[in-house]
Structures are given as structure tokens and as C-alpha cells.
């Protein structure tokens, strides 16, 4: 039995980091460490001696980090970027998902592949969650403006809620615009007039 792989995940997004850690621990016996704060990274990595490092491609510190990893490799232990250049498909999938992996040289491919597969799946899952959240947020914000626009109409023209909504909808349809845009315009204009 070889000793468990030590995987370091560098990610300032707590939720995503946990998602990855859970995924990695679910099926395999890995030691996983999360680094959220990138200051003092050189020292931390030197102490942790990881076998595999995973970092988000969007992390603004990735370039700094890469210099540190390469420096560690030169002085202490060899580090190869990417698993194996023959495995183009897997690396492409990783980059598409927004993840990059740095792997200690000499690590066998069959030990790396499941780690990357899990990380890729979790990155995609996180992305879906984020999209959902943002869409919901936008929808809520839209609803808020529409509610305010209705309020303006009800107050200024003594309309019922139902009539105010119908008027907004009709205006939007007549002008070929989104309901939220018409509401936005009305709220803005009301702000100037009242």
C-alpha cells in the first residue's frame, strides 16, 4: 500500500474548495489541504510537500504561483506542469473546466487521472451552482423593479395593482421591450419627477 497522495487545493472560493475536497475524499484515500490565502505561498508549499497542486485558472495569483512552483522544482524537487503531454484530452478537459494542475514528476498516471477527473467534475458542478444563483438573483432584482414601478403607477394614477401590471405589460409589448426595462425607465423617471 503506497502512502496516500497529498493534494493541495489553492482556491479563495471556500464553497468550491469544499466541493472539491468532499469529492476527493468521498472515493479515495487522499490527504487534501486547502490554501485560501495566497500570501506566503512559497513557504506554505515548501512545508506541505504536496504531490499534486490544483489551482483555478481564474485565480489572479496563478502567474505568481507558477513562478513559485517552478522555483521549488528547481531547488528541491522536480515538478512537471501537467500530467503527461500525451494525455491531451484530459488536460484540455481540465483547462475547459477552468482548472490547472501541477504534478510532481514521476507520479504514475493512473494515480493522477482520478484526482483530475473528480476535480473537473466538481469545477463544473460549482459553475452550474454559480450560474443558478446569479440567474435567481437577477430575476429577484427584476421583480423588485417591477414591484416599484407598479407602486409608482398605483400612487400617481390611482390604479389597482392588477391594472398597473397590465399597463406595464401592454407598454412593454407595444414598444417591443422587456417588462423589466420599461419598469426601470419608469422608476428612473419617477425619481426625477417626484
Amino acid at each position: 500500500m503506497s502512502k496516500p497522495l497529498h493534494i493541495v487545493v489553492i482556491d479563495p472560493h471556500k464553497e468550491r474548495a469544499f466541493l472539491i475536497v468532499d469529492g476527493l475524499r468521498e472515493e479515495w484515500d487522499y490527504k487534501v489541504t486547502v490554501i485560501g490565502e495566497t500570501s506566503g505561498l512559497a513557504r506554505k508549499l515548501g512545508e506541505l510537500q504536496p504531490d499534486i497542486i490544483l489551482i483555478d485558472l481564474e485565480n489572479p495569483s496563478r502567474d505568481s504561483f507558477e513562478q513559485i512552483v517552478l522555483a521549488l522544482g528547481a531547488s528541491e524537487r522536480p515538478v512537471a506542469m501537467f500530467v503527461d503531454h500525451s494525455d491531451q484530452q484530459m488536460m484540455r478537459a481540465a483547462i475547459d473546466a477552468g482548472i490547472s494542475a501541477y504534478v510532481v514528476d514521476g507520479l504514475r498516471k493512473d494515480r493522477i487521472t482520478p484526482v483530475l477527473e473528480t476535480a473537473i467534475a466538481r469545477f463544473h458542478a460549482f459553475h452550474r451552482m454559480k450560474t443558478e444563483l446569479e440567474t435567481t438573483k437577477a430575476a429577484l432584482a427584476e421583480r423588485k423593479t417591477i414591484d416599484r414601478a407598479k407602486g409608482v403607477l398605483m400612487k400617481a394614477r390611482g390604479m389597482s395593482e392588477e391594472d398597473a401590471y397590465a399597463l406595464l405589460r401592454k407598454t412593454a409589448m407595444d414598444q417591443g421591450r422587456k417588462l423589466s426595462e420599461v419598469a426601470d425607465g419608469l422608476v428612473d423617471a419617477a425619481g426625477l419627477l417626484l
Binding site: 481564474e58 485565480n59 496563478r62 502567474d63 507558477e66 488536460m91 484540455r92 490547472s100
Partner: peptide, 16 residues
């Protein structure tokens, strides 16, 4: 839009 040059480099390398 990419924040890091290393990411631009990798995405070119893998044909993305």
C-alpha cells in the same frame, strides 16, 4: 478574458 498569461499560454497550447 484571461487574468493570467500562463492561462493564455496553456489555452493556446491545448488549442482552446
Amino acid at each position: 478574458r484571461e487574468l493570467n498569461w500562463s492561462t493564455v499560454r496553456d489555452k493556446l497550447g491545448f488549442g482552446i
